[in-house]
Each structure stands twice: as C-alpha cells, then as structure tokens.
C-alpha cells in the first residue's frame, strides 16, 4: 500500500485537526492564566503603586509612544489623503465635494485612526515585547526572576501594559489630527474647496464623542497588543528560532485579535446608537 493511500491522507487530516485544536486549547488556557495573573497583579500594584517599575514604564512609553510618533503621523496623514482622494472621485460625480469632509472625518476618527495606530504598534511594540520576553526565557532570566521570588507578570507585563494604555490614545490623537489634515489637503487642492469651508464642515459634523469612541478602541487595542505580545513571549520555545517564531506569531495573532475586537466594538457602537 502506498503511503499516499486514502487512509493515510485521511489520518493525517484528522491528526492535523487534532493538533490545531490542541494548540487552540493551550493558547486559551495560557491566555486565561495570564489574564488572571495580570488582574491579580494589577490589583496589587494599584494598592502599592511604588511596586510598579516606573522606570520601565517610561522606557516602554518612549519605545511604543514617542519613537512611533513620526511613523504614525506619516501613515495617518497618507491614509487621510488616500481616503479623501477616493471619496472625492465619487463625491464629484454628484457635486457633493464638501461631503468629503464628513467621510474623512468619520472614517479617520472612528476607524482608521485607531486601526492604523494599532497596526503600527503591533509591528513595533507587540513584536518587541514577544522578542524581549522570549530572549529572557532563553537566557534563563525568567527562571531567575521566579527563583528570586519576583512575579514575572509584575516585572515584565504590567509596565508594558501601563505604557500601552497611556501611549495608544495619545498616538491615536496625533494620528487622527494628521489624518484629518491629509483630507484637508485633498479638499483644498484637488477639489478646490476653500480651506475655511472644509474646516467648518469638519468641525460641524464631528463631535468630541466621535473621537472618544475611537480612543476607547485604541485603548482596547493597546491592551490586546500588550497581552498577546507578552503571551507569545512567555510561550516561546527556549532557542533562537523559537523566539523568532513567537515574534512572528505575536504580530499575526495581534492583528487578528485587533480586527475581531474592532468588528465587535463597531457593532456595539452601532447597536448603542453612536
């Protein structure tokens, strides 16, 4: 019987499904444990703020926040530009050029601003988190932390989480503003709208709550990125390739989770009538 006999292919298939299911279950279990530990540790840190490693928070805010600012501004500006351009082509058919301001304003503030910032943060921060924790595992630093009686969650996860919680909304504000500015540029150049008119229209249709909705999203994304990055780091196998794989996996998983969270939040907002 050849090894490609039907039976073998079938068995392989079943085995693959089994392995995948096993992996998902393991991820779920690890995630639950990590989230539980984060909750417990956060409570402890809230009660004893001096136990938070503030210096690390500062470092990660710099890494995930200030250092990411130029790229965030750049990408969001271009997104605004592209969006306005596409909207303009359509709007011009109906002579409704001014509505480009609406389209750009809402899309950037509610969707694209937080989403683009999250994508950039995934690539920069999430992967860095996974690589850092994975490398620490290879070097037995995690074991050392544990045997010194330190909680790896308090030392490694909480500072990253706090930094992301602060950096993400701030980055999103910058992203939003540069996105709107991108739309404005298209509005006054390609569509020939008076700058004042575009500006007034934007201000008129947008409400501070619109931006707040986006910022809430960005906070949720930030939490996801930090948790997934750390989870993949802790799951990393103890060799150089293992660290590489966990880094890749952190990016893929984060993006997946962000898109899921985005859909859920968008549906929720719609359902609640925002």
């Amino acid at each position: 019987m050849s090894i490609f006999s039907e039976e073998n292919v079938f068995n392989d298939f079943i085995e693959k499904i089994g392995k995948a299911a096993q992996k998902i279950c393991k991820d779920m279990r690890d995630l639950t444990l990590l989230v539980g530990d984060i909750t417990r540790t956060s409570w402890y840190v809230i009660k004893h703020p001096s136990k938070l490693r503030w210096r690390d928070v500062g470092y990660y805010m710099d890494l995930c926040g200030s250092q990411a600012l130029p790229i965030v501004i750049m990408i969001c500006f271009l997104m605004g530009l592209i969006l306005a351009f596409q909207a303009a082509v359509q709007a011009r058919k109906f002579g409704g050029e001014i509505f480009v301001a609406d389209a750009v304003g809402f899309s950037i503030l509610k969707e694209l601003g937080p989403l683009m910032v999250a994508m950039i943060a995934t690539g920069r921060a999430g992967s860095a988190f996974a690589a850092e924790i994975g490398t620490m595992k290879v070097n037995e630093e995690i074991s050392a932390l544990e045997t010194m009686g330190f909680s790896p969650t308090r030392f490694l996860v909480i500072p990253k989480l706090v930094a992301m919680l602060i950096a993400m909304p701030v980055l999103t504000v910058f992203g939003d503003v540069s996105g709107l500015f991108g739309g404005f540029i298209v509005g006054i150049t390609m569509l020939g709208l008076p700058g004042m008119a575009y500006y007034t229209r934007t201000i008129a249709v947008l409400h501070p709550s619109t931006m707040a909705l986006g910022l809430i999203k960005s906070i949720v994304f930030g939490i996801l990125i930090a948790i997934v990055g750390c989870l993949r780091g802790f799951q990393s196998e103890s060799d150089a390739q293992g660290v590489g794989r966990s880094t890749t996996s952190s990016v893929v998983t984060s993006i997946f989770m962000i898109v899921i969270a985005d859909s859920v939040l968008t549906m929720l907002y719609t359902f609640l009538g925002y």
Partner: peptide, 20 residues
C-alpha cells in the same frame, strides 16, 4: 512558594543577568 524562593539564592549556568 515565592516567599520560600526568596530565602535561597540560585546562580544559573549562563548567569541569567537581566540584560536591561
């Protein structure tokens, strides 16, 4: 366990120093 662990010292083969 944590309480117990901090009462003894461990040195690892590679040092396991915190890189940062």
């Amino acid at each position: 366990k944590r309480e117990l662990m901090r009462q003894f010292g461990v040195t690892y083969q590679g040092g396991a120093l915190f890189g940062s």
